[in-house]
Amino acid sequence: MSLTKDDVYRVAALARLQVNEEEIEALVSDLSRILKYADQLQQLDLMGVKPMSYVLATHTVTRPDVIGSSLTPEEALTNGPDVEEQQFRVPAVLEG
């Protein structure tokens, strides 16, 4: 599998990453090589093999609906880069 610059720009957009001119060549080459290596998986016959997402059978864990301790609003906000009136402030979501 060989990637193009456009493929990398498309994936970067999905991942909310900016890729600049200096990075793009190296990324195209690195990612292509990694995917080419991973192409060996295409050799295997996997008909009927179940995909495994977790090692153990996962099951839903429940607990009694009892109020426990939790962070105070101040604690929860303390690492916020821009906080005002118990809210996180962000740049404009809608423009115009």
Partner: peptide, 14 residues
């Protein structure tokens, strides 16, 4: 082609 196949291979390795 990639993610699901890798998960299937994971089953074989286990």
């Amino acid at each position: 082609a990639y993610y699901k196949r890798a998960q299937q291979v994971r089953t074989l390795i286990a």
